[in-house]
Simulated assay, not measured.
Amino acid sequence: MGSVQYGGGLDPIHIEDRALAHLKVVIATKLRRNESFTLSWQHPEEEVGGRSTIWLHPSIPLRFTFDEPETPQLNAKWIEELMLSANSTGGIMLIDEVLETPEA
């Protein structure tokens, strides 16, 4: 389970390593373009229920920490879906992995 430390917040945001690796690509792309946006996620089952949203801005410190030392192979379709949500008025909604489907 990886984590994100954002700004001066004391509590890290815990996100599974594979999802965090994909999310990192999308967030870094947006921030590199100097774009601000929101990130929303549902709390893991072991935490108090509900969901959270944070405002991401290029000037606020951000750190990604991974439990696994190796970067997983990235799923381009999942990154594309996360980027589409990042570009929407609702911001990024962390969704389950989108799998490639064979063309019929």
Rank of each mutant, 00 (worst) to 15 (best):
2 G>D: 04
3 S>Y: 03
3 S>W: 02
4 V>R: 00
6 Y>R: 06
7 G>D: 03
8 G>K: 06
9 G>T: 03
9 G>Y: 02
10 L>N: 13
11 D>P: 09
11 D>W: 11
12 P>M: 04
12 P>W: 01
13 I>T: 01
13 I>K: 00
14 H>M: 10
15 I>Q: 08
16 E>M: 10
16 E>H: 12
18 R>A: 05
19 A>R: 15
19 A>C: 14
20 L>Y: 03
22 H>G: 01
23 L>T: 01
23 L>Y: 05
24 K>P: 07
25 V>K: 04
25 V>I: 07
26 V>R: 00
27 I>L: 02
27 I>F: 01
28 A>D: 06
28 A>G: 04
28 A>E: 05
28 A>Q: 06
29 T>P: 02
31 L>F: 07
31 L>G: 06
33 R>L: 15
34 N>V: 13
38 T>R: 12
38 T>F: 11
39 L>D: 03
43 H>P: 08
44 P>A: 12
44 P>K: 10
45 E>S: 12
45 E>P: 07
45 E>V: 13
46 E>G: 06
46 E>Y: 10
47 E>F: 10
49 G>F: 05
51 R>W: 02
52 S>P: 13
52 S>H: 14
53 T>V: 10
55 W>K: 15
55 W>P: 14
56 L>H: 05
57 H>R: 10
58 P>F: 11
58 P>K: 09
60 I>D: 09
61 P>N: 06
61 P>Y: 03
63 R>P: 04
65 T>W: 02
68 E>F: 00
68 E>W: 00
69 P>H: 10
69 P>W: 08
71 T>R: 15
71 T>L: 15
71 T>P: 15
72 P>K: 14
74 L>A: 12
78 W>Q: 12
79 I>F: 09
80 E>M: 08
81 E>H: 14
84 L>I: 07
85 S>Y: 10
85 S>R: 09
85 S>W: 09
86 A>L: 09
87 N>A: 15
88 S>T: 05
90 G>M: 00
90 G>I: 00
91 G>P: 05
95 I>N: 02
96 D>Q: 13
98 V>N: 08
101 T>D: 05
102 P>I: 12
104 A>R: 14
